[in-house]
């Protein structure tokens, strides 16, 4: 049996015919395994869904309790048998509940890593490298210019700016799931114990993280139509809100944005960001390369992102590699994510 017999590419995404399940399907399917709660991976309307309890909770908060036919929670490391196939969810270190999925069949081990990172994150379990024959990886930051610096240093830039401009509110654009909570946790780790203010679209998931046991300290809502200038305060908002009417309620705010994209200056300028913070929930170039080596895989499939460079690197390392050119997770995944997140979250804002 070959890897391609176990996992194939269909218009709905990766499909395992032996178990009749799709992984992170792009359209409604009868049976789905979901790696994590970001809306381009976790969509509503499937029949049966298998995912971690946290991912299921995130999906329920997003789409309502009836987001699928039946939901089954799985613990990290717990093997589930689906016919001739054994699947195991393992931590991916991307966001709370995120998982890699190990698929074992016909003597082959295939890991679908979903989105992942190797840097430490106080809000989720760290990535566990798994030995496998085929490693399926993303390549969102699959270029050697994407070397993410230490996140604590980036948080210090924000703290420094707060002391430089104590009269200006610091609007910190961040994706509402994962990044926002990680930033608050990092701020707390650096000793920042003042209240952190939230755009309306940030509240629900922030609250959910609290319910799932992630302590984030004093969080407050920005009152609708409030006159308070929140000078010297950190205000978390979705990236799109930085250029929004919403941002104009603050006199002369500092526009900050935490994302791996901020590594490239033009990207930050295109968004009108003054204070770019390079904090990423995706693996940077060095992490991608190191992870591929650690898995010991002889074959690498690259799902989306800058696949060309990573495939080239693998080939040079003597690994069989192929790009899957998967659309739908977006060439520009983070951007797609931001748009999708806002579309979902905005009604409550």
């Amino acid at each position: 049996m070959q890897a391609r017999d176990i996992l194939s590419l269909t218009p709905a995404g990766l499909y395992c015919p032996l178990a009749d399940v799709h992984i992170d399907p792009l359209r409604p399917v009868p049976r789905a395994l979901i790696t994590h709660g970001h809306s381009d991976h976790a969509r509503a309307g499937h029949g049966a869904v298998l995912a971690t309890a946290e991912t299921l909770a995130i999906m329920a908060a997003r789409y309502g309790e009836g987001f699928c036919g039946t939901a089954q929670a799985v613990r990290y490391g717990e093997a589930v048998t689906l016919g001739p196939v054994r699947v195991t969810f393992l931590p991916a270190g991307h966001v709370l509940g995120s998982a890699q999925i190990l698929i074992e069949a016909g003597g082959l081990r295939i890991v679908v890593s979903g989105d992942y990172k190797r840097a430490s994150d106080p809000t989720c379990a760290p990535f566990e490298p798994v030995r496998c024959d085929v490693f399926i990886t993303e390549a969102t930051f699959g270029l050697p210019v994407f070397r993410h610096p230490d996140a604590a240093g980036e948080i210090d830039k924000l703290l420094h700016s707060l002391t430089l401009f104590p009269e200006r509110a610091h609007l910190l654009g961040a994706y509402p799931l994962g990044k926002a909570q990680r930033l608050v946790a990092l701020l707390r780790q650096r000793g920042y114990d003042r209240p952190v203010y939230l755009h309306g679209a940030m509240e629900r998931l922030m609250q959910l993280y609290g319910e799932l046991g992630i302590a984030l300290g004093d969080l407050r809502k920005v009152e609708p139509g409030g006159r308070e200038s929140l000078g010297g305060a950190v205000v978390l908002c979705p990236p799109g809100a930085l250029q929004d009417l919403w941002a104009r309620r603050f006199p002369d705010p500092v526009a900050a944005f935490a994302s791996g994209w901020m590594r490239v200056r033009a990207r930050a300028r295109q968004r009108g960001v003054e204070l770019p913070l390079v904090v990423s929930d995706h693996a940077g170039w060095d992490e991608l390369c190191a992870t591929i080596r650690e898995t010991g895989a002889g074959e690498v499939w690259v799902t989306h992102g800058e696949e060309e460079a990573l495939v080239h690197w693998c080939t040079r390392e003597g690994l069989a590699a192929r790009p899957l050119n998967m659309l739908g997770y977006g060439d520009d995944e983070a951007e797609a994510e931001a748009v999708a997140e806002e579309a979902v979250a905005e009604p409550s804002a």
């Binding site: 270029l143 050697p144 210019v145 490239v264 033009a266 460079a309 080239h312 690197w313 040079r316």
Partner: peptide, 22 residues
């Protein structure tokens, strides 16, 4: 690696920044 450099330069669109990052 020349291929990785070319892809990076194409993405970043600025020689100085590409080299500074790589």
């Amino acid at each position: 690696d020349p291929v990785l450099f070319a892809l990076s330069y194409d993405y970043v669109g600025d020689l100085s920044e590409t080299v500074a990052l790589m």
